[in-house]
Amino acid sequence: MRKVILVAILITLLSLALTQIRTLAATPTPNEVEAVARTLYCPLCVGQRLDSCEIPLCQDMKREIAQMLTEGRTPEEIRAYFVEQYGPVVLGEPPRKGINWLAWVIPIMVLVAAVGYAGLKVRQWSQERALTGESIYTTEQGDVEDEYMSQVDRELSQLE
């Protein structure tokens, strides 16, 4: 009888220890929580990343991240959950779909157009210079000097 009780106690202790080990293994480290929090933004602040945000909502969100990691959810699933809860603002950038694509495409198009236009202008300008044979060093001061030299010539000829 004593043997049976001893075995029962041992089995109970062993199962408790195993449960504890499993819980510890599933508990995410602060670094794992921070890694997910770094990819999210506070929905109430402007441009404030979740990992460096200390307001109560951010603290609650970080606790939810830890909870979801414990449940075995992937960072991608956690991000999707927060987008569903608070909208795309938590991603810190507009989602790359639908009309939001314009926010990504237009700045690039403007940049390409501006660079292209500037390149075209520079080429046009250098071609014009080459055709007229005009020195790029011709300045207003040069024109003044030419005028001055002409006047000197005129006055010299008058003296002669």
Binding site: I106, M109, A113, G116, Y117, L120
Partner: peptide, 12 residues
């Protein structure tokens, strides 16, 4: 090119 650039800038 100028017209397209102008329209893009206007849209932006």
């Amino acid at each position: 090119g100028q017209i397209i650039a102008f329209l893009i800038a206007l849209l932006f």
